[in-house]
């Protein structure tokens, strides 16, 4: 143990490199990161991956089980549904719609929410107070109710369900961002930055943002998870995608009557949602840990 008697050749790492070197040690998180990447790639290139067009009906093969179950057909790996449509193709399309929707919502909500939240935190007085109370009111309306109202007013469609979910998640995100910025604003180094004459944008970019990474990651993860769950819930209740394009929740709802004759039609879409949430959660949890540990030293 002569740690002291050899010179440490490594350069001082930047915070980002340091966080990455902590993250790298967590093999589970790395696996989850690749998993998330693959899922995102599936979402982006779903149209090229699908083995069959999702809406094509193979009338000769109705209700095929997955190929490893007796009576299955290796042409349709996950079997077919009651109209003879390929389950795998529909599943991939479902993943594309659900995950893609959730990612779009997360991005939209985070951009819009950050702008509103930061403005609210940096302005004082009446405007902030009005926003505060409005947010409070929106926060206490259950998300499902918000979604129902919007869908009743504008009619059920995939786009409307996405808008409804974003609107119900937006207050949560604004609230989270607002609280973390507010906590940061009271700290001494922000005051000293202010005294240096930093503009609000500069204050946010260099003073606040690097210090609220951890709550932001937690918040994004939460918004993403809730978006997946809510999109599929709305789809399940029949307020999401209509007719041919079907996302995962609607996929489950459409096969629910067949639950005893071919349970895998219900099982696989649920499993897909499960895996999506699990993979992204492990990834962000690993990231959060790395950020916390990086901040500790």
């Amino acid at each position: 143990m002569l740690i002291n008697n050899e010179f440490n050749e490594e350069k001082i790492q930047s915070p980002l490199q340091y966080t990455w070197s902590i993250f790298k040690r967590n093999s589970l998180a790395i696996t989850a990161m690749w998993g998330s990447l693959i899922l995102i790639l599936i979402t982006l290139f779903a149209d090229y991956i699908v083995p069959y067009a999702p809406s094509t009906q193979y009338v000769k093969h109705l209700l095929l089980p997955p190929y490893w179950v007796e009576g299955g057909n290796s042409a349709h790996i996950l079997g077919t549904d009651d109209l003879g449509r390929d389950s795998l193709a529909r599943l991939i399309q479902g993943i594309q719609l659900t995950l893609g929707g959730a990612l779009a919502i997360t991005i939209a909500v985070s951009i819009l929410g950050s702008v509103i939240g930061a403005t609210a935190a940096l302005t004082k007085g009446l405007k902030a107070s009005i926003l505060h109370h409005l947010l409070d009111a929106l926060l206490i309306i259950p998300t499902l109710l918000t979604a129902l109202i919007l869908i009743v007013m504008f009619g059920p469609s995939y786009e409307n369900s996405l808008i409804a979910v974003s609107l119900s998640l937006l207050p949560q995100f604004i609230r989270g961002i607002y609280i973390s910025i507010e906590n940061e604003l009271n700290k001494q180094y922000i005051i000293s930055l202010r005294l240096d004459g930093a503009t609000n944008v500069r204050l946010l970019r260099f003073g606040i943002f690097p210090n609220i990474l951890e709550p932001i990651i937690t918040l994004l993860n939460r918004i993403f998870t809730m978006a997946i769950l809510e999109i599929s819930t709305l789809g399940f209740l029949g307020f999401g995608t209509q007719f041919l394009d079907v996302e995962l929740g609607a996929l489950i709802a459409s096969s629910i009557v067949l639950i005893y004759s071919s349970p895998w039609l219900v099982f696989f879409p649920g499993l897909a949602i499960f895996i999506i949430i699990l993979v992204f959660n492990i990834f962000t949890e690993g990231l959060r840990h790395a950020v916390i540990e990086g901040e500790d030293l």
Binding site: E10, Q13, I22, R25, L297
Partner: peptide, 16 residues
Amino acid sequence: LSIDISTAQGKVRVID
């Protein structure tokens, strides 16, 4: 008395 703290960059001997 020696204290080593393990960090992501390896052990650092803080008390030597």
